[in-house]
Write a protein that binds this DNA or RNA. Structure first.
Length: 145
DNA sequence: TTGTTGACCGAGT
DNA sequence: AACTCGGCCAACA
C-alpha cells in the first residue's frame, strides 16, 4: 500500500513545472481545455477540494462530484475541471475519479497509459479491462462522507 | 453567431 | 455486455 507521499510523487511526475505553465499537453493529445483555475471564478477549486477528500482505496464519479459541489454544474463540467487537474495545487488524487460505469475514462491524461490503473491497484482496487471491479463497494459518495 | 468538442450520464436497444 | 442517443454547457474557431 502506497503512502500519500508516494501517490503525490507519482502524480507529480505528470506535472509541468509551475513556472512553465503554458506547456500543457502531457501526452500530446490535449486540444483545447479550461484556463487556469484561478482565471475562472471557479467551481474548479470546489471540485478539487472534494477530490482531495476521497479516501485512499475508494473512488467517486464526475456526476457525484458535480452534485455534491452544491453548485449548478453538470458532470460534464466536473470532467472539464478535471481536465486541468494536473495544475491543481496542492495536488489532487485524480486517479480516484472515474465515470459512472466505473471505467477509467481519464486514464489518457496521466503520464503513462497504465499509471492511473497502477495507482488504483496500489490502493487495493482491482481493475480489469479499464474497469473497476466491485464498483459499488469501492464507490465513495462525497455527499455523505 | 453558429457549430463542434469533450476525463459525463441515464435510458433505451 | 456493448452499443446508441439526447441532454448537458463552457470554451474555441
Amino acid at each position: 500500500m502506497a503512502t500519500d507521499a508516494d501517490i503525490v510523487h507519482l502524480i507529480m511526475k505528470t506535472y509541468r513545472s509551475k513556472k512553465g505553465l503554458p506547456s500543457l499537453p502531457p501526452a500530446g493529445n490535449r486540444k483545447t481545455g479550461p484556463k487556469e483555475p484561478a482565471d475562472t471564478p471557479s467551481f474548479f477549486e470546489r471540485i478539487y477540494e472534494l477530490v482531495r477528500q476521497i479516501p485512499k482505496g475508494r473512488v467517486t464519479t464526475y456526476g457525484a462530484l458535480a452534485e455534491a459541489s452544491g453548485l449548478k454544474i453538470t458532470a460534464r463540467m466536473a470532467g472539464w475541471a478535471m481536465y486541468a487537474a494536473d495544475r491543481a495545487q496542492p495536488p489532487i488524487p485524480a486517479h480516484r475519479v472515474v465515470n459512472s460505469s466505473g471505467v477509467l475514462s481519464g486514464k489518457d491524461h496521466f503520464s503513462t497509459p497504465t499509471l492511473m490503473q497502477e495507482l488504483l491497484e496500489q490502493e487495493g482496487i482491482v481493475v480489469k479491462k479499464d474497469k473497476i471491479q466491485d464498483f459499488k463497494t469501492v464507490f465513495w459518495d462525497p455527499k455523505s462522507p
